[in-house]
Amino acid sequence: DNLVIALHSYEPSHDGDLGFEKGEQLRILEQSGEWWKAQSLTTGQEGFIPFNFVAKA
């Protein structure tokens, strides 16, 4: 599955970004460039995340 774990917390800075906490698990929905579309397994919310803040779970 496309699961990743957050290496750092991220505060959203643009509409459509997904904020998350360090250690949170996310499911990657789309990989494109440096911003990936993801869904939080904690909150169920979707949005874009910086790819370098996460690692394969």
Rank of each mutant, 00 (worst) to 15 (best):
D1L: 11
D1M: 11
D1C: 15
N2E: 09
V4T: 04
V4S: 03
V4E: 01
I5A: 03
I5F: 10
I5Q: 04
I5L: 07
I5M: 07
I5G: 01
I5C: 09
A6F: 04
A6Y: 03
L7Y: 04
L7T: 08
L7H: 05
H8P: 01
S9M: 06
S9T: 11
S9R: 13
Y10G: 01
E11H: 14
E11R: 14
E11N: 12
E11A: 13
P12E: 04
P12A: 13
H14R: 15
H14W: 10
H14D: 09
D15K: 12
D15N: 11
D15A: 13
G16D: 09
G16N: 09
G16K: 08
D17N: 09
D17I: 08
D17F: 15
L18S: 02
F20I: 07
E21S: 13
E21A: 13
E21K: 14
E21T: 13
G23Y: 06
E24S: 04
Q25K: 14
L26E: 02
L26C: 05
L26K: 00
R27M: 10
R27N: 05
I28W: 02
I28L: 10
I28E: 00
L29S: 02
L29H: 02
E30A: 09
E30D: 12
E30V: 10
E30K: 07
Q31P: 05
S32V: 14
S32Q: 12
E34N: 13
W35R: 14
W35I: 08
K37H: 08
A38I: 07
Q39E: 07
Q39T: 07
Q39H: 07
Q39C: 09
S40P: 00
S40V: 04
L41H: 02
L41W: 03
L41V: 11
T42D: 08
T43Y: 02
T43K: 03
T43F: 02
T43R: 03
G44Q: 07
G44N: 07
G44W: 07
Q45D: 09
Q45N: 10
E46S: 13
F48G: 02
I49A: 00
I49F: 07
I49M: 02
P50H: 08
P50Q: 05
P50A: 03
P50R: 07
F53A: 08
V54S: 01
V54G: 02
V54L: 06
V54I: 07
V54D: 02
A55V: 14
